[in-house]
Design a protein around this nucleic acid. Structure first.
Lengths: 222, 222, 222, 222
DNA sequence: GATGAATGAGGGTTCATTCAT
DNA sequence: TATGAATGAACCCTCATTCAT
């Protein structure tokens, strides 16, 4: 239920480390993380230099190392903050004990709902995950991903068992497609466009559950 | 209809450049591009050094510059080769003058069908596009993307006009979701698993057109 | 007779500076010097960071600068403390007005006798002297060294004049060899081994005065 | 009999690596090593920057990495070259099957004989060994040292068994003192002074075997 | 005295690229 | 075509030191 390999049950190590800092120190740190996240999202993790991050904060690059061990530590905090929040939201949705379709709808809404507050983190995860995963320190991300997958897959299976979902689809595969569809939207979604994230969610829920077709015809090609 | 900003109508500049080379030289070049593509896909464009590419080919890094002007030229060739092929396939599907649902299904199949032969290129496009787009030379990729978008959106609209597709969905949005769902699959799809790309396509077509729900219930919206 | 270039006759500047501090402040300072000396000895002067010294003392690196102007000041104190003590001991030995061999023996014993109480300082002097001497502030160390050399050389010459020492050896050269043999022992001497420093001294005195050979044979090769 | 942990029997890995290079490449490399050795000796390993080494060679610092993996690799080559030569010389001396005193004398001469050709390497070993040994890659230096120690100690013991050397001295301790006395001379020995290294050797051999005392008196210990 | 944020200079190293051979 | 030496700019990071609090 946590996002870090060596963590306890409810908090990531990063979060715990953060908590040990004094209030204002933590605020400064959080601010720096936010600035860095924006840069990582815009230019990519590797293409963002520590000098740029520092410049954005109005300090020198060396000064960043008063707050963080390394560039990796910064992106780590970006990602784990997001995952902590995401998983917490999912858990809350599960606690409602509604039927599978309702829960799944809510989870879709949660997913799209993170698009704005965690836009930068999600973008980093989409673009730089392939690079970051080669570092052992980010193994915990895989674990978090697995946990999320289990949550989704069990709901899909429950829906199938209850006769709510068609039984001829693969739960794991279906989860992956839903997940990807939601997160990849971060690439083109911009606040202020035709639809807000809530509209996006409803749009997707409609297509997801009821399909694109009207049922007028059932032509299909092998 | 082409993938390069400064190209003519049917061939990318990269392709034309390639064509000017002698047969065996072109083969050597293609081989190098293929090796590079694999590395780009595995480690990311930025994280892959020209030294590594050269090493993989059994030559020294400086020697690569007899074949390519720059590292960017290599990845350019990787991407444009893929896009050339993709667009050509789409065009063929459009020529069938079948109904919108049939055409759209075929286009989904085409998309999934590129997952294996163009795995590396698609991976690079997914992971490194955000970085590469900042270089002017890759502007043509945006144009190619726009062209593809138009192909899809017009089919969706045609389907709606024909009463085949529900009219309460946004064509552009729907296209994006379909597109993302297909391409992102490259991240987890591995040949030899439960489903091949053809199976993946049918699975997705089912959910896409007819929805996940069985219709047993019409429970709600949050 | 003193160890600092700009000092008076009997005390080093460092000592004087120390003396001006209040009792407990001086104790704190001495403690910090001792901690630093250990680190310098173990890791080398350059490789030891002020952060490490401060950490060892349970404070932050910036706080060290309430006690010392600079890192060099700390090592200065380490070295001058040792030299002050050494020269004081030599002087005492000279006051006995015994014959040259007795005095020289005593000086060897004094040298080995500093190995334990001044282990760290001697180690620093052996390993980091080459680096430290480039700073003008450590010029006084050369002067102290010269003073010590004069003490030894005059004793050796006196011994030769009195017919106690063979006259075919170079006094200065002999001094250097004795000196080096004693101090370099700090590299391998560990308290608690077969011989204590006193045993080491006697062992060396034996070989030094009477030679390794038994006299049984006088084979020699050019 | 070799100076590297993972080496075969007669050559160090460094040497083998060097040998694989073409003639002129090796020469360039050797030249760079020589320049670096001088700087290391003069300023210390840590205080010498790669930029300084490169400047000395008239190239840029980055260019050094065309020849060496790292700064450590350079100093490694400096030290192993010296040790290879030293051990080879010792072996040759042992092959003469002369009596222990003769062999030991020869080994002292060998030691002093390296002072000039290997001055830089010996200086580095004296001053920076304490720092370098913390890196695993230099473990082989300890092994080389052990090998040398065995050569010496066995000769001293042989001399004692043959009644040539006094039996009341500790072989290991005696070796260490001899070793230190020879090598530390690098600190003050300058070619062109009163004595050349050959003179130094004979001087030391005299004192070592026959002692400083004339035998006129046997006063001992205060 | 101590803190902690920041400085500023520099360190070792990387890497795409060039070019004479 | 390929080599290999070199470039030059940039990168992440370190560290002694300062100073307002």
């Amino acid at each position: 239920m946590t996002t870090r390999k060596n963590s306890g049950t409810t908090t990531t190590p990063a979060k715990r480390q953060r908590a040990t800092s004094s209030g204002s120190a933590s605020e400064r740190r959080d601010h720096l993380v936010k600035l860095a996240a924006e840069l990582f999202a815009r230019k990519g993790f590797q293409a963002t230099t520590v000098r740029e991050i520092a410049e954005e904060a109005g300090i020198l690059s060396g000064s960043l190392y008063h707050h963080f061990d390394s560039k990796e530590t910064i992106v780590d905090e970006v990602l784990s903050t997001f995952l902590d929040d995401l998983i917490a939201r999912y858990r809350a949705a599960l606690d409602t004990s509604a039927d599978a379709r309702t829960v799944l709808s809510e989870m879709v809404r949660i997913g799209f709902g993170t698009l704005e507050p965690h836009r930068a983190a999600i973008t980093v995860m989409q673009n730089d995950w392939n690079y970051l995963r080669q570092f052992e320190r980010f193994n915990y991300l895989v674990k978090a991903e697995d946990e999320v997958e289990q949550i989704w897959v069990s709901q899909i299976k429950a829906g199938q068992a209850a006769g709510l979902f068609r039984s001829d689809v693969d739960p794991k595969l279906t989860y992956r497609m839903i997940r990807d569809t939601i997160w990849v939207a971060v690439r083109w979604f911009r606040p202020g466009g035709r639809l807000n994230t809530s509209g996006l969610a409803e749009h997707y829920i409609t297509v997801l559950f009821d399909g694109l077709a009207t049922g007028e015809r059932t032509t299909q090609k092998g």
